[in-house]
Amino acid sequence: MSRATYTPATRTPPRAPRLRFGRTPVRSPLGRAVVRHAMLLTVIAIMLYPLFWMVGASFRPNNEVFTTLGIWPSNFTLDNYTEGWTSGQFSFSRYFLNSLVITGLSVVGNVVACMLAAYAFARLDFPFKRVLFAIMLGTLLLPYHVTLVPQYIMFSELQWINTILPLVIPKFLATDAFFIFLMVQFIRVLPREMDDAARIDGCGYWGIFRRIIVPLSLPAMGTVAMFTFIFTWNDFLGPLLYLSRPDMWTVAQGLNNFVDATGQSAFGPLLAMATLSIAPIVGFFLVTQRLLVEGIATSGLK
């Protein structure tokens, strides 16, 4: 779509006959819609091209990877996948298993811990609540650098290096305040009448939490679970710090090590493994994108 379409050199009179599409401002609603869709689609195509290229290249013979700009592989092959999967000291089965365990525990921990804290902030009254809530919001803006070194020292004193504990335990302690905030926003607008009804029926705080708040908050919990999954799956610095033994590595580490080990020679297998490493994220996204997009719109989560 040419730029002239939407930056016309001169203003044409409203009734001027349209000589050539693209030289005059498009005035009909249909024309404008076409132009808008064309622009939006062009930007999407440019943005997503690298991703599609990577997927296509991963199915090409290794010697063709560099030479083709197209997306569809003409000589379809799965060699890159079989070669890449077992290339390292440990196969990617190991890395995927490690990533799955860490990510799964992180999701459970984060959802439970954030939900507990969010219920307290959204519904209960206790001394210093406002101060603590302000501190919670403050930790949103705190750069993680300042806790990195002492946490490492602490975890190494605890003999937790080369275990998954330094990656998983913080999730059970709700250290990511974004998720608490997201859930507080959600629980706040749930009708309080249900709490009152449950209280009259003899529920304590735990009962209200378990029987009223949790079932009503399932959408928010789903959003938090998806984001935790994606962030943990992508996390690289954490595993890099705490998992130095190759049999403990996550997918991200295995992939990074693959770069160092192969350089340019095995680009096909590298792209194949890179494709596999983001496949779970893209898959989850396609299934749950409505949940994710609504979550981000209510909390500004990134």
């Binding site: 507990l116 307290a120 209960l124 206790f126 609540k129 709700a174 705080y205």
Partner: peptide, 12 residues
Amino acid sequence: EAVAGYLFLSPW
């Protein structure tokens, strides 16, 4: 309520 609040908040 205060006790419950802090119990729910204890992991965080």
